[in-house]
Design a protein around this nucleic acid. Sequence first.
DNA 1: GTCTATATGAAGATAGAC
DNA 2: GTCTATCTTCATATAGAC
Lengths: 218, 218
Amino acid sequence: MLHSHNDPPAAVEAGGLSRYSEQKRRQILQAAFRLFLRHGFEATTMDAIAREADVSKATVYAHAKNKQELFAGIVAGRAALIYGSVELQGAESAAPEDALSRFARHFIQLILSPEAQGIYRLVVAEAPRNPELGRIFFEQGPRAVTQRLAAILEAQVRTGHLNVDDPLAAAQEFLGMLHGKFHLPCVLGVAGQPPVEELERAAERVVRTFLKVYGSMR
Amino acid sequence: MLHSHNDPPAAVEAGGLSRYSEQKRRQILQAAFRLFLRHGFEATTMDAIAREADVSKATVYAHAKNKQELFAGIVAGRAALIYGSVELQGAESAAPEDALSRFARHFIQLILSPEAQGIYRLVVAEAPRNPELGRIFFEQGPRAVTQRLAAILEAQVRTGHLNVDDPLAAAQEFLGMLHGKFHLPCVLGVAGQPPVEELERAAERVVRTFLKVYGSMR
DNA sequence: GTCTATATGAAGATAGAC
DNA sequence: GTCTATCTTCATATAGAC
């Protein structure tokens, strides 16, 4: 069996982990994530992860207690990263059309990105057998985004730019509409990745619809 | 190993299948569906299906070519059944508030039913490795419902009760909003099954929001 | 920490008797 | 069609050397 030559572990450094180990750790996490995305949790084997990461299986087990923990750690971590990236700078002070537009464009591209779709599939599939994973994903992902949007809406209400009775409910309507046209067909592989212009058009339409309901200057 | 006593197959009847065989077929399909819902595709074994159906594994293979086909057949069949049940009688002629209300209440209870949620998880999880399954589910399920709703909206536009520019887009907005508050948390197991009254309130809110945008008498 | 080698158990699928 | 028994492959996880 081929594998790269192995230097002996370097001396342990400040953090308590050798450089060597850190690199293997990254290899393992990346390989595992790639394979989980491609084959799902059950169909991904520890053998395949070791092969893809170019380490031995025993090394994989040295870095992760078992397959479950490897999986949950990776997926939760990536989900938080991705959903945390929704850009909201200055959204409270901008004109509502602009704030909502920017938010909508970011969000729709986020949820249609291949990585976000892959994570969505994994979490939806495994949540019943791994409730903690479902909880972490939901709270750090969709729920966090919803709450941030609700906060923006509330700020816009205070400045008189919007007229929203229930910011949380309105935020859920807004995000629901943004899923509308593309999310499910893409997740199911029925539609390919839509071109950016089409996404922007869809986002703009949702913003216009939303402002017809909650815009305060009509 | 325990199993029920086996009578020899009864004489073949009109349809070409013995009663005996039809019963085992039902046992197998039901058992497989239960297990797929509970454990997902990969983690469900043919051994377990045979055990749960109280037949031998060879009998399972006599009724289904392999695990893939057993799975796809069951899931697609149940999905079509469930989504086909959305009640739309007379929706074109009723007042738009009533038509949309009835539709919304049915739809939101449909997508939150345990069986629909289970199928959703299975299809989302396996669609990348089984594109045909994703396509069939989408077309017979969500897409069919969306188109029926769009047709209702169009009829309401013709009678002057609604003012919708793009019935398909509006239908997608409506259905997206109906997913909004409950669908994801329930699919992820973060929230339990909400009580019916709460679902009705949520449905009513969406209808009101929708009519603020597309109602023609304001 | 990292490797090779292996223990242990199941998986999907089929053979062959009835 | 249905069973029991089995083939073959491969899974998760660990032991033991370095």
